[in-house]
Amino acid sequence: MTRVSMRVDGVTYTDEVEPRTLLVHHLREALGKVGTVVGCDTSNCGACTVHLDGQAVKSCTVLAVQADGAEVTTIEGIGSTDALHPVQKAFHEQHGLQCGFCTPGMIMASIDLLKENPSPSEDEVREGIEGNLCRCTGYQNIVRAVQQAAREMSGTSETLGAQS
């Protein structure tokens, strides 16, 4: 067992872990951060995407021991129902999710993309989220959501009138 300490969504946790423990399993099973999910075993689907020291990574392909001393942000740390992150809000308003399983990873990847490219074209969004698979939406509304969030975050948006 190895002692690891990391700050997750603003709280510092110190635990003993087996070196083989994947970061995503540590988050889910030791810290109860079950908002982040596992969708595959080959790093393709991106459902497990979190931010590690501010950068989007696939937490199924990082060992918990590698995140020792790091700052981790999950879907649970970016906003709440009362104060949604603009990307969360846009996914809701543009119907960018159906079953919602890929959504945490999709949102975390999208936030990362917008940090690097605050005003992506449709093609740039599509490429920017190529590491995240969704089986429900056909992606079009996800693309719309990311573009809406981009407009809102850069202050150029007219907020679309959400009805609920």
Binding site: S43, G46, T49, L52, Q55, A56, V57, K58, T61, V62, A109, D112, L113, G128, E130, G131, N132
Partner: peptide, 9 residues
């Protein structure tokens, strides 16, 4: 190479 998350690691 791969995707943006993978390229980060």
């Amino acid at each position: 190479v791969a995707d943006r998350q993978t390229r980060r690691r």
